[in-house]
Design a protein around this nucleic acid. Structure first.
Lengths: 141, 141
DNA sequence: CCCAATTACTTCTAAATCGCAAGTAACCTT
DNA sequence: AAGGTTACTTGCGATTTAGAAGTAATTGGG
């Protein structure tokens, strides 16, 4: 495991969060783990956006180092692994919600599945409970 | 003005938001405009984190293209300019709050000014109103 | 058991971006 | 008119990213 990102720029939580999450891929990988139930490398690899495998591998390692993602062996198949969000990762949910809301409001030709968007807006707390429960259900032993 | 970022990766609001904001500098520039009352290039340049001038210029142009920041002439001095958040930019406030909360909770040795953090947590709506009012007060004509 | 397919990565290379230092142009100040 | 300030731009080496191709371990099928 490499160290996450070399130098600390300041004590500011925004700058520090960005040192972990501030790139174009980390949060879309987290999105797939959080909202789309993806668990395996191959599943993450064929995201809508087309991550390249080298970038995916790098980001996954980076997210593991940051304690946002865990990697565990697959119960049935030794060549497979499973990726899961930790609690630290799950707690990015509010951030993700804001990202979705801002994006759908302000970036043209952007859309999320209507039922998700509706649930998010209608009762945010309930939506968060549901997503969290879903994520914790399948956690590795 | 250059175009913002070349290719659209998908319709997903998360991916699209990240195409605009997903780097290590954009949101710290927005932080300085949002919470620290900075308005001029020179002020933004000597951020705690030390942006280089070339990166700052590039990000500012990028944020202008994205409609998040506006640049206006300074009333008293023709060689100066002022940078302001647009409404689109101001509406990143909830996202910034989540970034601060997550960062202070999970990234070690990270801290925001205690009075701000307290205000954020105690009454988030009131905090947002106050910040927004402050930001709209100094808007260009 | 053997071979092909699957899965999860590495490695390689070219292209893009970053960070620093230096330079420049327009304007203000004295 | 000379010097300082402000807001950049330019150049360049170093780092990072993207894409293609290759590899190693494992598994399923005949």
């Amino acid at each position: 495991m490499k160290k996450s990102r070399s130098k600390r720029r300041s004590a500011c939580p925004i700058a520090n969060s960005l040192d972990i999450l501030g790139d174009r891929w980390s949060l879309v990988i987290i999105r797939d783990l959080m909202f789309r139930g993806k668990r395996e490398y191959g599943e993450l690899l064929d995201s809508e956006e087309g991550v390249s495998t080298s970038v995916l591998a790098a980001r996954l390692e980076h997210l593991q180092c940051a304690g946002i993602v865990t990697k565990t062996g697959h119960p049935d198949d030794l060549k497979k692994f499973r990726y899961h969000l930790t609690e630290k990762g799950i707690d990015l949910l509010p951030l993700m919600i804001e990202l979705v809301l801002w994006g759908t409001q302000y970036v043209p030709n952007t859309s999320a599945p209507p039922e998700i968007l509706k649930a998010m807006k209608k009762d945010r707390e309930e939506f968060m409970r549901r997503v969290k429960q879903e994520l914790k259900k399948g956690l590795p032993a």
